[in-house]
Structure formats: structure tokens, C-alpha cells
Design a protein around this nucleic acid. Structure first.
Lengths: 261, 261
DNA sequence: AAGTGGTCTAGACCACCGT
DNA sequence: CGGTGGTCTAGACCACTTG
């Protein structure tokens, strides 16, 4: 039984009068309490990726608030890419499976022409122990089990990205090279469907580095050639880091595109 | 006389009945029409950077709509960093002068420690003609006048960024090296106050490159050392590009931090 | 106390999607 | 057609800032 159908008690709320709240220090508006509640429902798997959540009217009745209030909660969640609204159809749990938001985190673009299709070529996957660096990024103890994946990303056949990916082993038990090789979908889509782990947001740290011998060989460039180093930490619900990856991007014919708001 | 006090006629709107609109193809909700109208007012300088705009109640009366409708217009503009809301005080035109949003576009962070203070050291500023590359980025004809600025950015005294900046000359006439040297503020803050040009958003394209001799000398690194190349196009209102810059970042002790939503 | 943005309601009607 | 999200209103009251 998930959170959604359990009892609910909102703070700062009189029994008879419809509105209102207590003095400031811990004040949280109703719509935000509802949002937090719905996020908990998502965490607990109440609604799966791609599922439709209840309609605004149903939610309003369930929480005994007006439509406008649940609407504001949903608005914020949609802005954070947790939900997707579709007029006339309903509101859906965001999924990396959906082409609309697949490759949401991939900022690499060809210098000219349209954004091509990329193909993932997994090279290896093995169980190992977290180094100090990996442990720090994943907020676990050094030596804890992680799954290390190496893979190439090809654009139009050309090797452009070399990724070394580290996953908290506990959450991805059973992940093997064969499992990765068999899949046409994006990694995050697979993580979602096969392991129930949903990536919500990520942080990337970029640097310019010279290619080491091993990476140069795999990417087909000269050792020492400047590469874009991209370290990414990806988070699930509750800002829990579950993946850390170090990517090396060959930027001869591609670039990393970033929008500054 | 600016747009704001001129006559207003909303589309899709009956005279007597308060609401509504025509069939779909050109449908634009009321709040968005109001938003566009207010953006035009900003463009025409009706309200300057840092100014308070009229209160929601005043705007609602002015446009003869409910508070909720102007509120939604303002919400979107605040989300786009055009306005800043401050509870109890009012709504203000965003400004790069404000420490809250100064260096909004600078993503460079030290590898360890807090985000230090940076110091801009202008090296040169001269009037020249746009190269094909610069012209394309600024959407002007090759050969048109641009102002080329070279400057170093130092963090804790260490040269970390070398910027080559190109500005549409027409908009920045009178900009000289002395003018830049005299200023303690950020470039965009100066552009705003002294030239009335406000940067709204920007696009950056990142690559890894090897340092050329000249740049290496200025940054104090070895020629060929990998540097992060950052090409930025910055836009004012109406998505008009007004600045293009090519930055070279030394990422030995710093990195480019990016949040992926 | 007065003025501003922020929250909430109840109800109406519109635009879009499927059947 | 009925159901969903999307827009709009009118009015109430709360929270924060300033005088």
C-alpha cells in the first residue's frame, strides 16, 4: 500500500474553515504539502513511469482542496520534469522511455546538421569496489559495491563519447553486459523499466583534458588530443545520487550545447 | 511615450462578456497577450533595470482583468528572469547590477572551496569589421562594425579565462578600454547602465582545444595545453543577438558546472 | 496601518482528445 | 459526446515589508 491511499493530515489547517495556517517559521503552503505528498507517492511507486495520475478533479476531491490548489502542485512538478501534462488526455509520470524526454541529459550536438541518432556500444560491465572518488560522488563508503560500465557512444558510426559509468550495485543487481547489449533504448530508460530507478536531475562538471593512451585508442584519436571531460552525478528522488559517470567527448565535429537562462 | 500607457486592444475578446476567445489557430490566452505587452514595455524602456513595476492590482485595473491573470503573466516573466518578485515590496525589473543575478551566466567554479571573487582585466578594445564567423553569430552582414574586446578573468590573482568579445558597434558606441578599466562591476551590468542593452539569455557551445601560442602566453600555460573553449552568443529582448564571445578557460583548478533539469 | 505579493476557493467556460 | 487539462473571474484572507 503506497502513500497515496493512506491517511492524510495537513498541517496548519482548521477543521471547519477551509483555509489557513500557523505563524511563519514552519509555514508551508497547502499546494506544497500536496506536492511533497505526491512526490512521496512517486517514490513509493504508487504510479509508474508513463502512467496517468488521477485527474485534477479527482485529486482535488481526494485532498479536499480546490482544483487550483492541486493544479499549482502539479505545475511545479511539471516544471521539475517529474510529470508531463497533456491537454485533453491527462497528466503522466515522466519517463525516459518517452521520445519527448529521452536523451534529456545529453547535450552533445553535431557542429552542423540535425541532431543525429546515437548508438550505444557497451564494452564491459563488472562488479567492483568504489574508489574514494566514486564513493564521494555517490555518497557511499569507499569499498562499497558498485557496478562499473564502460561504453562507447557513436554518432553516424563515429566514436564520439567514451563513458565510464558507476552505479550503486545494490540498486542495479543483475545488470550485466548482455543485458545492456540487448537493449536499443537509452540507459536511463532501461534503468527505469528494469530496475525501477528514475533519474530526476543531474550535475555535470566539465574540463578540458588530454587523451590518455587507453581512451585515445578507444576513441580513435591521438594520445594527448584535447578531449572534453564530463563528470556527471545523477540523482533520483530525494536528491539521492545513484550514478556517477566520467565521459570523454571528442569535440572535433561535435560540441556541448548549453542554454543559459 | 512607451507602449504601456498607449491604447490596448486584446484579441478574441467580447465587449461585454468578460472572457473568451476565437477558434484555435491563432488563439493566445489573455495572460500571454498581457505578457507580450509588458515585454514590449520593457523593450521600449518603459521601466528601467531595477525599477519597480506597477502592483498587480494596478496592472489588473489597467488591463481590466483579474489579479490572477496578470499574476500568471508575471509568473512566466519571473521564470524567464525578466522580473524579480519580492514579497511585501513589489515586482522589479531584473538587473545584472543586483548581486542576486550578477554573474548569472558564469558557470566556472573552483574545484574546491567557495566560489571566489573574480576580477576582470581588460586588455584591449578596438573597432573592427565582423568576420564571417562573428557576423553569422550576431546575425549581421560580414564587414559590419563590431567592437572587439579582449580581457582576462582572474580568480584569486590567477589568470583563468581569456575572453575575446565582439559587440554590435551600433549599440555600444563610445565603449573604450578606459571605460572598461574604470569599472568594478560586471560587464553586463555596465552594458545595462551605460548602453541600455540588457542580456536576457545566452547559448554556449563548449569544446576542448589545445592552447595556441598567444593564448597560452596570456593565460600562463604551455602551448598545446588542453583548454575549454566556450563560444557564447548573448541575446536581448526579441532573441536579438548582440554579443558573441569566445572564451578559453584554463580548467586545471576550475571546472564548468552545469545543472541538468 | 497600509500596501505589496502569496495562497485559496468556488464556479464558469474554453480547448483538446478520445469514443 | 464526456473527460481532461487550461483559462478566467471575484472575492477573501495571509505573509511580508515599510512607515
Amino acid at each position: 500500500m503506497g502513500a497515496f491511499y493512506a491517511e492524510i493530515r495537513f498541517m496548519n489547517r482548521e477543521a471547519s474553515r477551509p483555509v489557513m495556517r500557523s505563524p511563519s517559521p514552519t509555514f508551508s503552503p497547502l499546494y506544497r504539502q500536496i506536492k511533497e505528498f505526491m512526490i512521496k507517492s512517486l517514490e513509493e511507486g504508487e504510479w509508474g513511469p508513463g502512467d496517468a495520475i488521477p485527474s485534477e478533479a479527482e485529486l482535488a476531491a481526494h485532498f479536499s482542496v480546490s482544483q487550483g490548489t492541486v493544479r499549482k502542485a502539479i505545475d511545479e512538478m511539471a516544471a521539475e520534469n517529474l510529470l508531463v501534462r497533456r491537454q485533453g488526455k491527462g497528466t503522466f509520470v515522466a519517463t525516459h522511455d518517452d521520445p519527448r524526454s529521452a536523451y534529456r541529459f545529453l547535450r552533445l550536438m553535431p557542429d552542423s546538421g540535425e541532431s543525429e541518432h546515437s548508438l550505444s556500444e557497451p564494452l564491459s560491465a563488472r562488479l567492483t569496489e568504489a574508489s574514494r572518488e566514486v564513493a564521494a560522488a555517490l555518497q557511499i563508503a569507499p569499498g562499497e559495491r558498485v557496478i562499473a560500465v564502460e561504453r562507447l557512444l557513436r554518432f553516424e558510426g563515429e566514436a564520439v563519447v567514451l563513458d565510464r559509468i558507476f552505479l550503486v550495485a545494490e540498486l542495479f543487481s543483475g545488470l550485466t553486459l548482455e543485458r545492456l547489449r540487448g537493449s536499443e533504448r537509452s540507459l536511463y530508460s532501461l534503468f527505469e523499466t528494469d530496475y525501477g530507478v528514475r533519474m530526476i536531475r543531474a550535475e555535470e562538471r566539465l574540463r578540458a583534458v588530454g587523451a590518455d593512451a587507453e581512451s585515445a585508442r578507444l576513441l580513435g584519436v591521438a594520445p594527448g588530443e584535447p578531449l572534453l571531460s564530463v563528470e556527471r552525478t545523477a540523482f533520483t528522488y530525494g536528491n539521492k545520487p545513484v550514478e556517477w559517470r566520467h565521459g570523454l567527448y571528442c569535440t572535433r565535429n561535435h560540441h556541448y550545447l548549453n542554454e543559459l537562462g
